[in-house]
Amino acid sequence: STAGKIFRAMYDYMAADADEVSFKDGDAIINVQAIDEGWMYGTVQRTGRTGMLPANYVEAI
């Protein structure tokens, strides 16, 4: 389960779609929910934006 875990971005990511979020390497991602194998839903702490993000760009900390 991803509940209550904080994730950290390992790479920069530029949102490719309106429902995705952009983030930079080192950003903390909070309130994360796993959607499926490849995608998560969460909030980028630095920007306050919430949306979909690729699971392979982040790691649990």
Results as ranks from 00 to 15, higher is better:
32 V>L: 04
61 I>A: 13
24 K>L: 11
25 D>Y: 10
59 E>N: 07
38 G>R: 14
47 T>I: 01
42 G>R: 01
36 D>N: 12
27 D>N: 03
3 A>S: 14
59 E>P: 03
46 R>I: 02
42 G>K: 03
36 D>Q: 10
49 R>P: 02
34 A>T: 14
6 I>P: 04
52 M>P: 02
23 F>Y: 01
10 M>I: 11
38 G>A: 14
29 I>F: 03
46 R>K: 08
36 D>M: 06
17 D>A: 07
29 I>D: 01
18 A>E: 14
11 Y>S: 13
32 V>F: 12
56 N>W: 07
21 V>N: 07
57 Y>P: 05
40 M>H: 11
42 G>W: 02
7 F>H: 04
13 Y>Q: 05
4 G>I: 08
46 R>C: 01
47 T>P: 03
50 T>V: 11
37 E>G: 08
37 E>P: 12
37 E>Q: 13
5 K>V: 14
24 K>C: 15
24 K>V: 11
53 L>G: 02
21 V>Q: 04
10 M>Q: 06
61 I>G: 12
32 V>T: 09
42 G>H: 00
22 S>L: 01
28 A>K: 14
32 V>Q: 04
60 A>Q: 12
6 I>R: 10
25 D>G: 13
33 Q>R: 13
49 R>M: 15
55 A>Q: 02
45 Q>T: 07
27 D>R: 00
57 Y>M: 14
6 I>L: 11
43 T>R: 04
34 A>S: 13
46 R>Y: 01
39 W>V: 07
43 T>E: 03
4 G>A: 07
7 F>D: 07
58 V>E: 05
28 A>E: 14
9 A>E: 02
28 A>R: 14
58 V>G: 05
53 L>Y: 05
56 N>V: 05
30 I>S: 07
61 I>M: 13
29 I>A: 03
31 N>C: 10
54 P>N: 12
18 A>V: 13
33 Q>A: 11
10 M>T: 12
30 I>N: 08
59 E>R: 12
41 Y>F: 12
54 P>A: 01
53 L>A: 08
20 E>W: 07
47 T>C: 05
34 A>H: 14
11 Y>T: 13
50 T>Q: 10
40 M>V: 12
14 M>H: 12
51 G>Q: 01
46 R>L: 02
34 A>M: 13
25 D>V: 14
44 V>F: 03
26 G>M: 02
18 A>W: 06
43 T>I: 02
52 M>E: 04
41 Y>S: 13
38 G>I: 12
50 T>N: 05
59 E>L: 03
17 D>K: 13
5 K>A: 11
33 Q>G: 06
28 A>V: 15
13 Y>S: 03
31 N>L: 07
14 M>I: 10
27 D>A: 02
27 D>H: 00
9 A>L: 00
48 G>L: 02
23 F>G: 03
6 I>N: 08
51 G>P: 04
26 G>R: 01
17 D>R: 12
52 M>L: 15
49 R>T: 11
12 D>V: 00
11 Y>L: 09
49 R>S: 13
29 I>K: 03
60 A>V: 13
56 N>G: 10
30 I>P: 05
59 E>K: 13
4 G>W: 01
52 M>G: 03
7 F>S: 08
52 M>S: 02
30 I>D: 04
39 W>Q: 08
29 I>T: 03
28 A>F: 15
25 D>S: 15
44 V>L: 03
15 A>L: 00
44 V>Q: 02
48 G>D: 08
50 T>F: 03
55 A>I: 11
35 I>K: 11
1 S>K: 13
54 P>R: 10
47 T>R: 00
55 A>C: 10
18 A>Y: 10
45 Q>P: 06
33 Q>M: 09
48 G>P: 00
56 N>D: 08
30 I>Q: 09
60 A>R: 09
43 T>H: 03
57 Y>K: 09
11 Y>Q: 14
38 G>P: 06
58 V>L: 11
46 R>A: 04
39 W>P: 05
58 V>M: 08
47 T>L: 02
61 I>H: 11
6 I>Q: 12
9 A>M: 00
21 V>T: 06
14 M>N: 15
20 E>V: 00
27 D>S: 02
44 V>R: 01
27 D>V: 01
24 K>R: 12
57 Y>L: 13
22 S>T: 13
33 Q>K: 15
55 A>W: 01
26 G>L: 04
9 A>V: 02
53 L>P: 06
37 E>R: 11
39 W>T: 13
